[in-house]
Write a protein that binds this DNA or RNA. Sequence first.
DNA 1: ATGGTAGAAACTCTA
Length: 256
Amino acid sequence: MRIATWNVNSLKVRLPHVLDWVGKHRPDVVCLQETKLEDVNFPLDAFSNAGYQALFSGQKTYNGVAILSRSACSDVVAAVPGFDDAQKRVLAATVDGVRVVCVYVPNGESIDSEKYRYKLKWLAALNAWLKRELERFPRVAVLGDFNIAPEARDVHDPLVWDGQVLFSTPEREAFKNLLALGLKDGFRLFEQPEKSFTWWDYRMNAFRRKMGLRIDHVLLSTELAKLCTACSIDVDPRKAERPSDHAPVIADLKIP
DNA sequence: ATGGTAGAAACTCTA
């Protein structure tokens, strides 16, 4: 079973990229973030023709998440239960016995921003909910844009980013608190190249200069981590014409 | 110095 996550930064613009990519990599499940589409405009037929069912929770202009899957989904949840949030950032479903949770964690803007406080509250609510999901399901995969670089090696220049949003101590603590629930960072289960990043600013030729951050993650419950045979970042889509600013992350699971 | 780019929408906000 191959699962993946990709912040597409507008599914309207990136639909050809996504169709091309799923054709190449044949994932069983793909979590998408920043679709920026109202549900009525979701390109269901295009994915259906490519062999995928789709769940989606979107809104105009901002946010929006979706799960593409080859198999049917059940137990669909489109928000963190009990957390009042107008922003469409969460989608969960059970696919082939795996509890898939697609997340688009708030960016936070800057550490003195109201949006940053919202980000930390949002992460606390996610944590409390995932704790319960992990009690319900042995096989849990949380995939998405976490907008947090967990460690110094996940940042092109840790001194420049020290204390900044996406790399501040409270955010990294919140990420550690997710791992403390019994989740593993899938990418770090394997040896990886240095300077492995998933996001590069559109500005300042950041991609060409390898000035990125690793902020998109695949977190796996203990049982799923044992079944994970590979996890990698595919930087190729970032080289395309009109790319998303994020690259996809892929994990392979050997489900018995 | 407070840039620079991209997307959506509507001349600004978010990332």
